[in-house]
Write a protein that binds this DNA or RNA. Sequence first.
DNA 1: GGTAGACCTGGACGC
DNA 2: GCGTCCAGGTCTACC
Length: 326
Amino acid sequence: MTNTRLTIRPPADFDLARDVCSYGYFLLAPNHWDPETRSLFRVLTLYGDQGKPAPTTCRISQTKSTKIPALTARFDRALTRAEQALAHAQITRMLSLGTTEAETRDFHKTDRRWKKSGRARLFRSPTLFEDIIKTVTSCNVAWPSTITMNARLCEVLGGRSSAGGHAFPTPAKLARTRAPTLRSRCRVGYRDQRIIDLAKLYKNGTIDEAWLASPDTPDDDAFKFLLTLPGVGPYAAGNIMQLLGRYSRLALDTESVRHGKSVLGYTGTDRAILKQLVAHYEPFGDHKFRSYWFELWDFYESKKGPAHTWDRDTTGKTFTAALLKD
DNA sequence: GGTAGACCTGGACGC
DNA sequence: GCGTCCAGGTCTACC
């Protein structure tokens, strides 16, 4: 049997290099962006007929030869119909293909600064679970440690594809992992039990992805629920909101304060700067996270060059607050 | 409601 | 090479 190859039609304004390299998670395992070929490699966890996890390596690239920008996803084995449907859904989530051209136009009407570059979509994970764990691994830690934690989680607990790559651990796998294993082998520190508890909550349905993602669920309700999760405070909840495609909340941290000081020229105490940041983004209403994020991203690109040229193991590791201060 | 201190890791720094 | 300090967001105890 030949390996599966899927053709995906994204919205006409989609640009793989721009839209993958739009949020830091594209630098975290198991994602691997290749700047040379402008392709995204990663292992997706699909599920075979018996419901057993079936890690599968996938390479996503964009065809530029036709007028309509088609995406091609190549897999390391033949997929069943059900697996193809799941892979399609996971890729759609990762690349925010659900963000239509009309929604993009609406964002650009509110914040015209990004119309020229076309920025509107933010990269995320194939599953909400991975996004939640990635967010927890980014809290109270410098970026290089977040890179290490995600790499170790995949190497130690992620299933292996036939091509040899590791997937992100499944909720079931993390739910039955012992805290000392997470701490010593994945270097997650005190986050160990919180990660296990989150996996259990996801596995037993307490974290209800359908409810959280539903347009019928008000932003306030989703945000309040996220705050009840272990390891999730105001910053993490705000970040998970944007990973759900809800951009009405900010996710403010020390990096936001640095941005307020060095880019926006704010002065005063950290608390005063945070207050000014909230006022600054208020006019962008339901789009405020994107306005905030693309400002920040612009600054990173001014320091490190276009994001699609960043390599995970070199440029990607240099994002520390200390290095960005000047 | 506000605040102080602990949590853990890894990078920076001084010796 | 070793020891110490510090950054980072959440949680708990306390006022």
